[in-house]
């Protein structure tokens, strides 16, 4: 079956998805703040339709050194989460978790585990909130970490929605810790069918 285009989503559906994203990231930020003992706050959640190049530029240019933690989800709906932040800020997050300091030139397995765990908490909590709100049953894959140019990392979600049109439709949430210089993004990318499933359950309750 061919995939639907994002133009087929209604405005009310986009509103519902934004709200789901808001609650998802709210829960994720709370659990992360507790884990890291930080003043992490949610910056925004928005549903975006972007050109491919706008997405590649969202982390400070296609060549900016970026850390991405990616998980796929499947079950009643399918899609992916990508937690991204600039490499220097990922260093800060890892330092907060490991109670260390300073820039990390080379990630060893401890650093990889740390950033993987942070990504897993964020994505897992977000997904659990989504399940609770929609009643859908979803399963999250183990997280994968990549440190590379932003353009190369963001090409993964870009290719996902490249299959359905020339604009990327994604749910972007930002969160910040000003004191620690952290400005991370969580992107959720799913298919139109899956977004509609998430909405349908809620529409019935309205």
């Amino acid at each position: 079956m061919e995939k639907k285009s994002f133009n087929e989503l209604e405005t009310v559906e986009k509103d519902i998805i934004t709200e789901l994203g808001n609650i998802g990231i709210g829960n994720a930020a709370t659990s992360m703040a507790a884990m890291l003992n930080s003043k992490l706050t949610i910056d925004f959640t928005k549903v975006l339709a972007l050109d491919f190049d706008e997405i590649a530029n969202m982390m400070g240019g296609p060549e900016a050194l970026t850390v991405g933690v990616l998980s796929l989800f499947e079950g009643d709906a399918e899609g992916m989460f990508l937690f991204v932040l600039q490499k220097s800020q990922a260093d800060n997050l890892i330092n907060m978790l490991l109670k260390t300091a300073g820039p990390i030139d080379f990630y060893d397995h401890i650093h990889f585990s740390a950033i993987k765990e942070i990504g897993n908490i964020i994505e897992g909590t977000y997904l659990t909130a989504l399940e609770g709100l929609t009643g859908l049953s979803l399963k999250l894959s183990p997280p994968q970490v990549c440190i590379d140019m932003a353009g190369a990392i963001l090409s993964v979600p870009v290719i996902e929605f490249g299959q359905t049109g020339d604009k990327g439709f994604l749910v972007e949430s930002g969160f910040k810790d000003v004191e620690q210089d952290i400005d991370g993004r969580l992107l959720m990318v799913s298919s139109v069918d899956s977004y509609q499933k998430m909405c349908n359950v809620l529409k019935l309750k309205m």
Binding site: D53, A56, A150, A152, S155
Partner: peptide
């Protein structure tokens, strides 16, 4: 050259695309 785009060039100009992943 951006993603899913193309262009041409002639010396002395050169041509680039940034951050290729699976593209």
């Amino acid at each position: 050259v951006g993603i899913a785009a193309l262009d041409v060039c002639k010396a002395p100009d050169s041509i680039t695309t940034l951050g290729l992943g699976s593209c």
